[in-house]
Computed example of a mutant assay.
Amino acid sequence: MSTIVKKRKRLLLMFSMLAVVFVLAACGTSDVTAQSEGFWDGVVIYNFAQLIIWVSGLFNNSYGMGIILVTVFIRALLIPITHFQQKNMQQMNEINPQMTELRERYSSRDTETQQKLREEQQRLYKDAGVNPYLGFLPLLIQMPVFIALYQSVNRTPILRTGDFLWVNLGAPDPYLILPILAGIFTLANSYLMSMGRPQAGGKVMTYIMPLFIVLITFRLSSALALYFAASNGFAALQTVLLQNPFKARRERELKEEQEREAERERRRAMKKAQKLGRNVRK
């Protein structure tokens, strides 16, 4: 029961953070120029837009290519943090059996028992060197990027009216191709990451997040859908190259099969011992 509650809390937190992103993204309507004042408009949004424009100039002013390359560059900068987060998640999965044992040991709902459970859980986290809240670290770091990208495109005239392939970057994709691609790449990355986990507890997030990405990007600018497609496409490639989830799944399945075989051998040995014991008594 506590596991279900925890998963629901994580889902609620994830969606709340994304909701905050897009509420904040809608803030600010005036164009951002070199004369814009304030840290957010005059420094963050303006320089973010200028970076996209500069990179686009390397590709014959293809602003879509500018968004893709800036996105990939940002994702590359986040590789150490993402790797640390994934390592933390793997360690969390490794201590799940101990966590389950603690919940069963302190299953009573009274205040004193629940306090003891929390203390034991914190001790287990500390001994294992993990932090249960680090899973949201990359998202928290990317939140300003989401907002900056959305506002830099929608508040910079040259980007707002820019075209890329079949879309206007400041308007929704009329054919929904980019939102669907963003959802597919998000699903691919989520599925690849779940392959490396020993438990299937993350299946809800694996399928809900891609759907959520599609639903929010088909109404917003194509630039944001392009960002999600490039970001999660790069993340999926990174997961394959750095984590090799296919190898991790094969090793986990082999280990589980070895454990099952050892359990079968133990049961056969017990049955044989019991049979021999009955024969002796006879």
Rank of each mutant, 00 (worst) to 15 (best):
F59G: 07
W166Q: 05
S152W: 04
L117R: 06
R260I: 14
A148P: 14
P245I: 04
K271L: 15
W40V: 14
V44C: 11
R155F: 09
E263W: 10
Y227E: 04
I79M: 01
R155K: 11
L165V: 13
T113L: 03
Q90Y: 00
R10Q: 13
L226S: 02
A49K: 04
W166S: 06
Q50W: 11
L149K: 05
T71R: 02
A229D: 01
Q258V: 05
R281I: 01
V280S: 00
G66M: 03
H83K: 00
E257C: 11
L137Y: 05
E120G: 02
I45E: 09
L51M: 15
D31Q: 14
I81F: 02
L69F: 13
P172V: 12
V130M: 08
Q238C: 02
G183C: 00
R278G: 08
R250S: 13
E259R: 13
S62M: 04
Q122P: 08
S194F: 02
I216D: 08
G135I: 11
E259K: 11
T3Q: 11
I81S: 00
I216A: 08
V44R: 05
P245R: 06
E101H: 04
V32C: 14
L176I: 02
Y150H: 11
S36Q: 10
A25V: 13
K7D: 02
D163F: 06
F136L: 15
V70I: 12
L181G: 00
P80R: 00
S222N: 08
K275C: 02
P97R: 03
M92Q: 02
L242V: 08
R219Y: 03
R123G: 09
Q98T: 01
I4N: 11
P97N: 03
L139V: 08
L242A: 07
R267A: 15
L187W: 01
G162L: 04
N61E: 15
V130Q: 07
Y125F: 13
R266M: 12
L192C: 03
G129L: 07
M195T: 12
G202A: 09
Q85M: 13
L211H: 04
G66W: 02
M14E: 14
I81G: 02
A182K: 04
W54E: 08
A128W: 12
T71Q: 06
L134D: 10
T111G: 04
